[in-house]
Design a protein around this nucleic acid. Structure first.
Lengths: 335, 335
DNA sequence: TTGTACGCGTTATCAG
DNA sequence: CTGATAACGCGTACAA
């Protein structure tokens, strides 16, 4: 099933077949039809790898995410795929976890010829991956990460603001003992933590080291974080979880301990994944505009691929606090 | 950063470099060290594509799923990745949607040189994709699909039994008007429907065409299906949704209409994704052993890659009905 | 140790 | 208008 087979069947040379495929050069209509017929009969499809070898694009985008089982990433992956398909591109997803170097080097090197560009949504502390890629001239757009030090297009929400508003919401409800559970590996989480700190400051509250727990952003870790927080002599009355999974973990942990949300504990999440609407009570959370972000990041990347150079746009979206049922005016007794 | 660069820097030929990389042939220890040093200095990594071109494996697995935003698939994708990593393999995920032919042909052809094997979890009606792959000698294992007509290893749950037990559960609770919402594209859904029908039969209940809705397995479609079912002159008192997403959709739809679950409507899902534990009330659902299935499918595929041929095992897992809070002994008035 | 033909399936360039 | 053939990129493998 190569052009040789087609050529043989059509009784022409491979050059002619190639021309038919690429619609280049002129030839007798009858020849063209003969070739086309042969292609159909043999169910021939051009080998993408060989084209890639010749420097042609593969019409494929690479998407790097830290954890595909996190609904935020699987939802945005879906949006990205849909948009890419609309524009005639395929996407392959690599869930890089946080195995740092090795995995990712592998992944990206492996891809660098196979995909026309990358959407990097992973949460590296190590930025060399992106840097290597751009130096090698591979189009890259970063998603979810705001790092001014890296010279590529970026699409992200204002994490600081999101963290700030989540915390202010708790404060306005009368809470003072507000804990934060953040993702240790994520740049976005440090921004969200800064927002949290800033909000505390405007209310004149000294942050407590004990109320700041860093972990990986899974449900299991959310449960653990909750347990740790509630073994404190003075447990928090409100928690800001830096993603919805963590928040679900808190809810599950609280449920087990018989602690009522929002009566005894207020909770805000981040992302507004399907999880936030499926829980009971429904989760108050900071929404990221997943649909727009996914669409934008694809458009940006494809532009860059076509243009041949990066526009280095940094597109900042506004997070939006969605108040549902896990937060309520507090009935705080002490102070 | 090719072997040529390394060779130049080390002052040897590329042949020597190649030998060092592959640990073949003999050479002076000092030469070997010189080459190794050069490789490190240049941060050289063998180009996987070139090796692939030469017929070497890429230590990469391809995973095809119909919809990555479905937690069942994103959760199993995660398990598959973890297991693959343990064994030194990477995995790239393609969410093929149901765009049938075009997309998938593209995807798989694109991969056929790039990955050492495939895990196919998609829900084709068109089995030619898998067939082509196996004919081309590419290792393939099917996940989630039981199709005796296809001659490859398969890992799946007993969908018939799952559907049967879900329905029996409803029947035992006194329900007679039981609807089913199935995924139109999924082979597994037809099995589950058969189980549903069989259960009805053992209770001597004639299935009603109106209670059988087929749709795509998303939350949005779950809501729609619910709406349709509840506009019926005689709405069902129980629903079996063929996946958790559909079930969530039903819950959301019911909530909107003010219909109480389980008081006014009993609900069983399928998959036991995180969704089932996060909702309120928590979802009664038929669990698939996601962790084992993911692990098994990877082991099977890697075996096949190493062996060079398929063992054509068909591994059947038992589904397990997990009774939570969306089903309750019915308070059915009529009949 | 080294030189170098070879492999993959195209595309592209010239002759004919 | 069509065909022969040289790239393309990067290793592998075998003869020298």
């Amino acid at each position: 099933m190569t052009i040789y087979d087609v050529a043989k069947r059509a009784g022409v040379s491979i050059a002619t077949v190639s021309k038919v495929i690429n619609n280049t050069g002129n030839m007798r209509e009858s020849t063209k039809q003969r070739v086309k017929k042969a292609m159909e009969e043999l169910n021939y499809h051009p080998n993408v790898m060989a084209s890639a070898l010749m420097g042609k694009g593969t019409k494929t985008l690479g998407l790097l995410v830290p954890d595909i089982s996190n609904p935020f990433f699987s939802e945005i992956a879906k949006v990205i795929e849909d948009r890419a398909h609309e524009k005639g591109y395929n996407v392959i997803i690599c869930s890089t976890d946080e195995n740092a170097e090795k995995e990712k080097k592998n992944v990206e090197l492996l891809q660098s010829k196979l995909v026309d560009g990358f959407i990097v949504g992973s949460t590296y502390s190590d930025k060399s991956i992106v840097q290597n890629l751009t130096e090698a001239g591979v189009p890259v757009v970063m998603l979810t990460q705001d790092d001014p030090a890296i010279d590529v297009s970026q699409v992200f929400v204002d994490d600081f603001k999101g963290g700030y508003e989540a915390t202010i919401h708790h404060l306005q409800n009368g809470h003072h003992r507000i804990a934060i559970i953040s993702e240790q590996m994520a740049l976005s989480s440090v921004k969200r933590t800064e927002g949290y700190l800033q909000a505390l400051k405007t209310y004149g509250i000294r942050p407590s080291e004990e109320y700041l727990v860093k972990t990986r952003g899974t449900i299991a870790n959310g449960i653990k974080a909750f347990d740790r927080l509630f073994r404190l002599p003075e447990p928090p009355t409100a928690i800001f979880a830096c993603n919805d999974q963590l928040a679900i973990g808190v809810m599950l942990g609280a449920q087990e301990k018989g602690i009522k949300i929002p009566d005894q504990l207020s909770l805000v999440g981040f992302d507004d994944t399907i999880l936030a609407r499926a829980t009971y009570p429904r989760l108050t959370t900071v929404a990221q505009p997943i649909a727009e972000m996914g669409k934008t990041v694809v458009d940006l990347l494809i532009d860059e691929i076509r243009l041949g150079h990066s526009k280095k746009e940094r597109i900042l979206y506004n997070p939006r606090l969605i108040i549902r049922e896990t937060t309520d005016r507090a009935k705080v007794e002490n102070i």
